[in-house]
Design a protein around this nucleic acid. Structure first.
Lengths: 250, 250
DNA sequence: TCTATTATTGACGAAACGTCACTGACGAAT
DNA sequence: ATTCGTCAGTGACGTTTCGTCAATAATAGA
């Protein structure tokens, strides 16, 4: 009368397997050519089983996006914990975002896709809530750094702005820069092309100087400080970048 | 021996008609539910004819996106021509971007969709070039303002930054802010929600102060200046916003 | 009127989607 | 051991959407 054979853990494993297969497909074909049939063909389960996990293609894409955000959250966390002044850590955090975008282009691409109405309009409520949760976690890392800065007086809130707004300012700055510039890796010309890491560095300085977040750019060599911090916190990631022939240059 | 019946102008008209129908569909159903068959059903041409204009669904979406960018370019142009100090005009231009996002959500949504690999990966080369062209035009308006500011010394280039980089800084700031916040119009809570126009105003001040672009925020009442400029340059648009019950509040 | 050329059509096959009736596996009850 | 009830898993199938192409209509000159 009660033949329950479902195992919570193996369900998770299976879901992750499907996600992994889908990511591999995205890496080789691009998100635009991802189809459920292709995923199902590469997975040891049938269509019905896959559709038990994801209500549709878009839901799968959003699941991948969530997985990707999780990875990013880990990077943010590590950056936030670096021992250094707050402004320095925030710069590091923003660069971890960039590292992520360069290192996992397929994931970054998928996250962008997840922002498309095309996708979130057809996803399950559960998955959407999960996304919200994860983004909250991301902002949490940023929030922590700003609080530290306020606590030690290196930063004071401008009139008419609260912490949340400072966090948002930082987030949207990094988001705008990276999403507009990332992906344009191979500029063919020799002219003054926009290099994403340089622009990101500039914009950090501009925004933080605008906030009068001390030490100001002219008072501290953030360039070298950032290099040190990156080498310490993101050793492995920098190595991966190097192997990709994509050393950061700012 | 030469029965050419193709008329350049009517071809354009027809293409625009298809685009208009598609926009109407997007407004009522959302981009995610746009299908070629639905478009074709509402248009006085057959499938083959429609496919003569657009190589596929994604190509149509990109065409709509381009149409949308054109409208935005017009707003930018008008903002850039306002008689006022350069920093003020730039602020106005960024707000015209916001007005656009609020006034034509379907178009804005479609432009975002056009950024998705899903779409641009399947569009015609011609359409992609057109897009590049149009975005160049957008940046041109920004460029002009910065040049004026440099010419009258209200702004000086920071070390290691050129005009293009200043333009980009502004663009990515506005893009990040609006794309992250726009669409979250109905925050259910009464707490300090992020209101897009307020954040946009803040970020303008932060960025421009960071650039030491005079007059600084503390030296000039940009809030009232912006209100005046908006009323003068975007009278019609403000009225439309008001009718939508969405007055700007910063 | 005839013809050469091009525009337009919509039926059609392919591809992808998502469903659902069926199979089978397992535990409990007899 | 057998029966039975329940649920995981299957994949064939109907549907939707896509995009093509062979056939048809339209046009202007000969």
């Amino acid at each position: 009368m009660s033949p329950r054979i479902l195992d919570e853990q193996s369900l998770r494993d299976r879901e992750q397997l499907i996600i992994d297969v889908a990511i591999a497909l995205i890496e080789s074909l691009g998100v635009e050519n991802l189809t459920m049939d292709k995923v199902i063909a590469k997975v040891p389960f049938s269509k019905g089983t896959v559709y038990k996990h994801f209500i549709g293609k878009e839901d799968l894409v959003l699941a991948i996006s969530n997985y990707a955000i999780n990875i990013l959250a880990d990077l943010f966390w590590r950056a936030a914990q670096f021992e250094g002044c707050a402004r320095e850590r925030m710069l590091l955090l923003n660069f971890s975002y960039l590292i992520y975008a360069v290192l996992y282009p397929a994931l970054f691409q998928t996250v962008i896709c997840g922002k498309s109405p095309n996708v979130y309009g057809k996803s399950s409520e559960k998955r959407l809530q999960e996304q919200e949760q994860l983004e909250f976690k991301l902002l949490g890392a940023i929030h922590g750094i700003v609080e530290d800065a306020l606590a030690n007086k290196s930063l004071t809130l401008p009139e008419n702005m609260d912490i949340q707004q400072i966090c948002f300012a930082n987030w949207s700055m990094a988001y705008g820069t990276i999403s507009l510039l990332s992906g344009e890796t191979e500029q063919c010309s020799g002219r003054t092309a926009l290099v994403v890491e340089r622009e990101l560095f500039n914009q950090n300085n501009l925004l933080f100087d605008g906030l009068k977040w001390s030490p100001l750019a002219q008072e501290k060599e953030y360039s070298t400080a950032l290099k040190t911090a990156l080498a310490k916190v993101f050793t492995k990631e920098l190595k991966s970048l190097h192997e990709k022939g994509r050393d950061l240059n700012f």
